[in-house]
Amino acid sequence: MSLLFNWDDLAYITTDLPGTGGRIRSEIADFQVDEVPAYPFSGEGDFLYLHIEKIGQNSNHVVKMLGEQLGVRFDKVGVAGLKDRHAITTQWISLPARYEKQLDALDMPGVRILETTRHNNKLGIGHLKGNQFSIRVRDADASHVPAVLEALKPIGIPNYYGPQRFGLQGKNAEMGLDIARKNFKGKASTPVRRFLISSVQSLLFNGFLSRRIERGIYDQLILGDMAKKHDTGGVFLVESLDESPRALRGEVSATGTLYGRKIKPLTLDAGALEQEVLAEFGVTLDDFRSRLGDRRITRLFTDIDFEPTEDGYWLRFFLPKGAFATSVLREVMKVSVDTSEEDDASEPTLDPSNPDSGVSE
């Protein structure tokens, strides 16, 4: 059974509304991402925090340049998540404070330091609240945007993993399953191996979510669901359909399982749907014994600003860490979204084991 990812096979939640078509990333300035920190920095401590702007550079390359020019070891550099190369992005990077005096000698094309501060710990993967996106869509019919955004407002956005999770030609999941089953013949570092296995988890989650949409239970709960409260993050087992009105009001949403040895599979009706997806892809729970596992919420709520232009439109919105802008764009555009970051996501040098650690698109 093939595990190749096909973005176009996933169900739309606004399938009855026309898309705008169009293209993204026609120019670097058309895709802008600003990282939002998870917590305020103290202004003092043993770690130097750099707020940088990158144009046409990915996070891995910036860390490499810092190592070459400052002599700082790779494992001493901290980032919260990976950021796009084909974009203008801002993010925070931490270094041991002793390198502060060498900053004036830095010469990194496409990178400038916006500000510096101090904090008492190294910045870690996942230490971000999320990302603010500003995305221009060109050659598009902007007249369709308001209706789609109005339809999404009460039901939320499907929290699909984006195509960059699955690498060039969507082969990450197949390699990841080979690694999990110890059938992989190639060479890959431990972080990359973990990332590839996480792409299998991501594929199965997308399948689970897509089937909920197809069966009309996207914004509802079914018996056996593990639901999550949007306000507090609390998770609970759905043992009665009396909980469904809360989902319809957007107070809670179902979660999908990112399989691992410490996460129990779903039961009852939700478990039957989960098992159906596993069987379709020929995957078993034993394939994830090397993973801890987690749960991922199936939908997101966010305010989306729309600005028409002469040839399309801008969309501006915030997404929490682990969420992908392509989930918003595909509902509005309803065409294959150009994802130029597959090269970055295929080699997640800075990304360890957490499947939601912020390859931010």
Rank of each mutant, 00 (worst) to 15 (best):
A279E: 15
G260N: 09
E274P: 03
A272S: 13
T267R: 12
A270I: 02
V277I: 15
T284I: 12
G282L: 08
L273C: 00
A270L: 10
R261E: 12
V283Y: 02
L285V: 10
L258E: 04
G271Q: 02
L266Y: 01
E276Y: 08
E280G: 07
F288H: 10
V283R: 09
L268P: 00
E274N: 05
L258K: 00
V283Q: 06
A272I: 13
P265I: 04
A279K: 14
E274Y: 10
L268G: 00
K264W: 07
A270P: 08
D269Y: 15
Y259D: 07
G282W: 05
L268F: 00
D269H: 11
D286A: 13
L273Q: 11
V283W: 06
E276V: 03
D287I: 10
G282S: 15
Y259G: 03
A272L: 14
Q275E: 12
G260S: 10
L268I: 01
E274L: 06
L273T: 01
D269F: 09
D286R: 06
V283E: 03
P265W: 04
G271C: 05
P265M: 06
A279R: 14
L273F: 00
F288E: 06
Q275G: 14
L258P: 00
G260A: 09
F281Q: 06
V277N: 03
K262A: 08
D269S: 07
A272H: 05
F288I: 11
E276I: 04
K262G: 02
A272Y: 15
Y259W: 12
V277W: 01
D287W: 07
R291P: 02
G271V: 03
K264E: 11
E276W: 03
G260V: 09
I263K: 03
D269N: 11
P265C: 05
G260Q: 07
F281K: 06
R289Q: 14
A279L: 15
G260C: 07
L278F: 15
A272M: 15
I263M: 09
A270S: 12
K264A: 08
K262Y: 13
F281W: 15
E280T: 12
F281S: 11
R261Y: 11
